[in-house]
Amino acid sequence: MKRTNRMLAALLALTPAAAVAQGVIVAPHAVFIDHATRSGSITLYNPGENPVEVTVSFGFGYPTTDSAGSMSVEVADSAPANEPAATAWLQAFPRRVTIGQQERQTIRLLASPPAGLPDGEYWARLIVSAKGGQVPVAGTPDSGAITVGLTLEVRTVIAVVYRKGSLSTGLTLAAPSATYANDTVAVRIPMTRTGTAAYVGTARVRVLDAKGALKGEDERALGVYYTLDPRVDIPVGPLAPGTYKVVVTLSTDRGDLPPKAVLPAPPARDSVEFTVR
C-alpha cells in the first residue's frame, strides 16, 4: 500500500462516521419576482458546526401527476422550447459559496428577460446544493484494509416565479371520483388551470357519512401549472355499510406563502358519493 494511502486510511479512521450534519436552511421556499424590480433573494443559513459548500443553479420543472395520481416534480437542466421558462435569463450571485458554521449568506437573483417579453408568468426552479467538506470514511488504519464510506449531498429545489403584467388564475374542477378499500378513501381530483398564471392554492377533502359526520379529511398545498389529477388517500378506518359523500374544496388560501404572492381566484367546490356495501 502506498504511503499516501496509508496516511489517508489513518486519517479516515480518526473521522467518526456520524460526525456530520451538513446542510443548509433555505428561506423563503419560493421566490416571486416582479417585472418592475427584476430581482429577488434568498437567505441561506448553515446551522451546523462545519462549513458547508453551497452551489446555486437553475432548472425547470413543475408538479405533475401520473396515471395513478402520484405527484412528482421532475426538474431538468433546461426547459422545452414551448414552455414559459425563465431558466435561461435568471442569474444568481454568488453561485458558489462556502458558508461557515452558523453563518448566513444572501443569494441575489437577477432577471435579464429578453426585450419585448410578453406579459405572463415565467417559471424556473432554483437548486441549492450543499455538501460538507470533510472526509467521511471510517475504518481501521490497516495497511491491507479496504475502507468504504459515502458522503451526503442535499439539494433543495424551490420554485421561482417571474411575473409580468396583470395576470389571472383559476381552476376548472372536473368531476372528482372516490373509491373505498382497505379502510382508506382514495379520491381523484382532476383539475385544469385557467387564466394566465399557475394556480397556487389548497385542496381540502372531507369524507362525510349520510348524517354529515366527518369520517376523515385531508388538506394539501397545490400548484396547478396546466393540469393535475392527484390521488388523495384519506384513512377513515372501517366504514359501516351506507352512502358517503366526499367534498372537495379548492381555494387560494396559502398560509405558507406571502399573501401578495398568491393570485386570487374564486373557490371551487364539488362532491361525489360512494357506497359501502
Partner: peptide, 22 residues
C-alpha cells in the same frame, strides 16, 4: 409580520461501511 417556515435539508450521518474484505 408573517413568519414563513424555511426548508431545511441536512445530511446528518454518512453511510459508513468501515472495513470490508475482498
Amino acid at each position: 409580520a408573517t413568519v414563513l417556515t424555511p426548508l431545511t435539508l441536512t445530511g446528518t450521518a454518512n453511510l459508513a461501511f468501515g472495513n470490508v474484505f475482498p
